[in-house]
Design a protein around this nucleic acid. Structure first.
Length: 359
DNA sequence: AAGCTAGACAACCGCGTTCCG
DNA sequence: TCGGAACGCGGTTGTCTAGCT
């Protein structure tokens, strides 16, 4: 395997850090500050590459880091942010003081994904597995399964296997937190339809908005970063404190403090993406929701989604983004609409696609 | 007691972006 | 403007440990 560039030049130590090495890093940083990590190993007398030193510092040694367990409030925030922006761990971590992106990522991969799966929620899309099963069933009617349906999410598969008793499978304490009935059975899916016929987050669609995470990530956020209300409205109100502080100050700290000051039991249904897109009940509630997010986060999410969108446009050579729409009927499911969109791309750029569609 | 397994988390890797000469 | 170095990020792998057989 090819080693990273900085580690090719000299023979460097790898693996677990010793207390002596940590002490050298700490002593060096306290004296010279962090930065210019490539020179740190030499100056600090370490046989590590600079990149490794930087990681050790940022992920473990920084004095402002918390090393205790994640609180339920932090869990709550991680899941909601993941539902909104996906695996942008660094952005999520910025909303959790004392936590690193690595911490958040590891916690998600080892704990939260599992918990959501046990709840019958797909941790990738934040939709109930029952809905995904229904969508796959719909696809089966018009697709060639061997060619058009991608690999099913591992958690999805696991959850199907667990589907017989998903709720009962939860630990006792977890059930107490939730205190929600089991997710709707396949026969009575949640209100998910119809699919919006545009990539734009159009207010006119908000009543029946149902979006996949990937779709959301592609959306250039059309709201004002100065208030963030529309963006904030994607979050459910279940875990928000009614005594939330003003929306001008940030953030996770204030929201966490608000949680602690006036705990309101959150609903795991909040983490279903379609619920997250449901509009707040009224303006007052919208204000409360807006207070949930810091301005920094709102603008960061804006930037991320904008960049994502710009890249998408460049790659696809599409017309301006507001012309980029599903051609499908709004009455079909989102998955079908995505497949339609993919099919259009197949037809437009057959030379770029390995597997042209026949339908 | 030994071997196995799963969970937790630290560390690494590769790639994209930013910075700077 | 360009190219290389540094940095940041997300995904993946490695290591340690506790619990179970």
């Amino acid at each position: 395997m090819v080693k990273s560039q900085c580690c090719e030049k000299i023979s460097v130590k790898r693996g677990v850090w010793t207390a002596e090495e940590d002490a050298k890093i700490l002593a060096f940083v306290s004296k010279h500050g962090s930065g210019n990590w490539t020179s740190v190993p030499k100056k600090a007398g370490l046989k590590r590459c600079g990149k490794s030193c930087r990681l050790r510092w940022t992920n473990y040694l920084r004095p402002d880091l918390k090393h205790d367990n994640f609180t339920p409030q932090e869990e709550d925030l991680i899941i909601k942010l993941h539902a909104a922006i996906g695996s942008r761990w660094s952005i999520i971590a910025q909303q959790l003081p004392g936590r690193t992106d690595n911490d958040v990522k590891n916690y998600w991969n080892t704990k939260l994904k599992k918990k959501l799966s046990q709840m019958g929620i797909d941790p990738v899309t934040h939709k109930p597995f029952s809905k995904l099963i229904a969508d796959y069933g719909n696809i089966g009617g018009c697709q060639k399964p061997s060619t058009r349906i991608g690999p099913v999410n591992k958690d999805f598969k696991n959850a199907i296997l667990l589907k017989s008793e998903p709720y009962q499978a939860l630990p006792q304490g977890f059930r107490n937190i939730n205190d929600q009935p089991e997710l709707p059975p396949t026969s009575s899916p949640p209100k998910m339809e119809p699919t919006p016929n545009s990539f734009f987050f159009n207010q006119s669609h908000s009543d029946n908005l149902s979006m996949d995470l990937a779709q959301f990530q592609s959306i250039p956020i059309m709201t004002s970063a100065s208030n963030g209300k529309e963006l904030a409205s994607i979050f459910g109100e279940g875990c928000l404190s009614k005594t939330s502080s003003s929306s001008s100050s940030s953030s996770s700290t204030s929201s966490t403090a608000a949680h602690e000051a006036s705990p309101i039991p959150f609903s795991w249904n909040d983490f279903l993406l379609e619920d997250a897109f449901a509009p707040p009940a009224d303006n007052q509630e919208q204000d409360l929701v807006a207070g949930f997010l810091s301005k920094d986060l709102v603008s960061q999410i804006e930037n991320v989604t904008r960049q994502s969108w710009n890249k998408k446009e460049l790659r696809s050579h599409q017309a301006p983004s507001n012309d980029f729409q599903f051609s499908s009927s709004p009455s079909i499911s989102f998955v079908e609409a995505m497949l339609d969109q993919e099919n259009e791309m197949f037809l437009s750029f057959p030379h770029l696609m390995e597997e042209p569609s026949n339908y």
